[in-house]
Write a protein that binds this DNA or RNA. Structure first.
Lengths: 343, 343
DNA sequence: GAGGTTTATGTTATCGGTAACAAGCGGCTG
DNA sequence: CAGCCGCTTGTTACCGATAACATAAACCTC
């Protein structure tokens, strides 16, 4: 049983010899829609299974000048929304035999550059990058790669290729509009480190724009440090905001994690939500729907982003996609709940 | 700018021609520790960058009979703990130029079999599988693959190769022991569909064993359906338990998600935690540390699992690992908090 | 300055598959 | 029965890189 690990894995040549046919016949036997005598094919399969033969996709792909890879970059796996997007994307591509090759850039455009360079060496058939802000070199690498490029989770002003995303600024504006319509005026923002998480920064920009548009004070803000935003940092940010602006009526957060952290801090301090303070988040994470009170949030529909991206890539492969770069705009859904008095 | 996508990507041959040298010299120019005139090397790099040359790892690896891949299977990405393990693993391997090739089996051993078969075709240099329960064919495939196999997140009775994990049953036993020591007697369990999530089933087995050992009633239980356990299903399970066994004093949950869902249901019903009911979870997810009251839980140290696995694989590659299959046992940490009166 | 060594580069064969072409063979047609 | 067709199988070259070996020039050493 404990055979020594095969130093030389079994190849088609070995199978061919054992089955008494040529390598080409073995190759054909492993491909559908090829003319091989059905008995021969069965025998080859039996011999191969018996010998523990494992098809070498790499070699086949080298010859066929393809890879069956789709490279994907996300900031981090530790975010259920990105995970959902990747999950839907993988699922959508798996049917066509495409494998997702995943990399993380930790919300850092320089790491993204290194990562993309590394991923491109695997000759993926398409590349999906999260976000629309990149280094010049990254843009050049992607532009010259000769493969479909899709930027997701954003609506870049100057896209590299295709886009499947939404406006991070826009949906926070909608959230502020909703709060203003409900009568809130002294509204604060938690999150948005401009140097790092560009989508977080976009959300803050949306907040500022909306507040100015309504003629309200846009000076109430507290950062949460490096992304991903943690629940702990949300709690700390709330403490800071209430210390500096005790009369704040509502808080809009860059993410549900921050919002939930702020909510728990309110519970500890006896601040009633939403009576004393309204709280809104972003992301429609599971916690938002179940915590007490439930959290008003924005659902960016991460699964839909992944699924639409997969559809787009398959259409491009099949040649059924319209000409030119596609921009597929996803409309995030406002999920009103108890934390803003909408329950 | 909008040049038509290169139908034929640039190869070393093209670079060689453009630089007026042979392919071999270009190959050397891209490898450290090879003797190439430094001016020539610089010129080749310049020409390559200018032409948009991208090194083809696949071809190089075919020749070198390696892949730089480590295949990893996890049940799902939608679980921060698995994500943390993969994250630490990727990070540990990245330094040696190893790429993680990730696949999801959705807590299903048959899907796992298909997945592993597919991953092996890429000729990974090692394979890491989450869990210690597999189909016979999967065991055969892994055993014959001739590469290091590591089972993680479990301590299988009959390991295929190496192991980096912990006893899922054991740590729930510890949790029950703790509750019994604190005076709780009527303890219920939430979760553990035996047909599907084998680690969840192990945890339930640990619960039953501990209860019987203490001579207590092990009949209080409610499932949460298919994994991954959701917060919603935890809330429903609590409702069911309290309907059937209103005098329950404590609830042990298969995961923090279930525990938090149960906690929110208590808040809605006016059940005080921990005064009327103690709640314990598993996983040490972020929510456990921040919610009110904070949740007693078990931290399986997912990052450490990933990091130790990476270390093991690197040692095996370097030939510095001890002979024979290694079993690295991780000791999960009990995190006592308010929900069991330990805050 | 002959012989040995180092440095820089080229040539050939090869990794494990497969496209393209070739060929053997039985059956069918006129 | 010559000729053509379809089915099955084999042969050759090649995908893009590189190990191994070969070679040419420069550089020492006694």
């Amino acid at each position: 049983m404990a055979r020594p690990p095969n130093p030389k894995p079994v190849t088609m040549k070995d199978v061919a010899r054992a089955a008494g046919v040529s390598v080409m016949t073995v190759s054909r036997a492993f491909k559908a829609d090829t003319s091989v005598n059905s008995e021969t094919r069965a025998r080859i399969h039996a011999v191969a299974e018996e010998m523990g033969y494992v098809f070498d996709v790499m070699a086949a792909n080298l010859r066929a000048q393809k890879s069956d890879f789709v490279a994907v970059t996300i900031p981090t796996l530790s975010n259920a929304n990105f995970a959902d997007t990747v999950d839907a994307l993988s699922r959508g591509l798996a049917g066509e035999g495409l494998q997702v090759l995943l990399g993380y850039d930790n919300y850092d455009v320089d790491e993204e550059e290194r990562l993309i360079e590394q991923l491109l060496r695997r000759r993926p058939e398409a590349i999906v990058v999260t976000g629309g802000t990149h280094t010049p070199r990254t843009r050049r690498l992607l532009g010259n790669a000769g493969i479909p490029v899709v930027e997701i989770w954003d609506l870049p002003a100057d896209p590299i290729g295709h886009v499947v995303g939404f406006s991070n600024a826009g949906c926070i504006e909608d959230m502020v509009d909703h709060l203003v319509a409900k009568g809130y005026r002294r509204i604060a923002f938690i999150g948005g480190d401009p140097e790092q998480d560009t989508r977080g920064a976009d959300r803050k920009r949306g907040f500022l724009r909306a507040m100015r548009r309504h003629g309200l004070d846009a000076g109430r803000a507290a950062g949460v440090g490096r992304s991903p935003a943690s629940m702990q940092s949300g709690a700390r940010a709330l403490t800071r905001i209430m210390a500096e602006h005790p009369d704040t009526q509502a808080v809009v957060c860059v993410a549900d994690q921050s919002a939930f952290g702020a909510l728990t801090e309110c519970m500890r301090r006896g601040i009633r939500v939403p009576e004393d303070l309204a709280i809104a988040g972003f992301g429609a994470f599971e916690v938002a729907a179940i915590c007490v009170p439930t959290l008003t949030t924005i659902d960016p529909l991460p699964g839909r982003i992944g699924a639409r991206t997969a559809e787009l890539l398959l259409a491009l492969r099949a040649g059924t996609a319209p000409d030119g770069p596609q921009t597929i705009s996803i409309t995030p859904a406002l999920r009103l709940a108890q934390s803003t008095g909408d329950g």
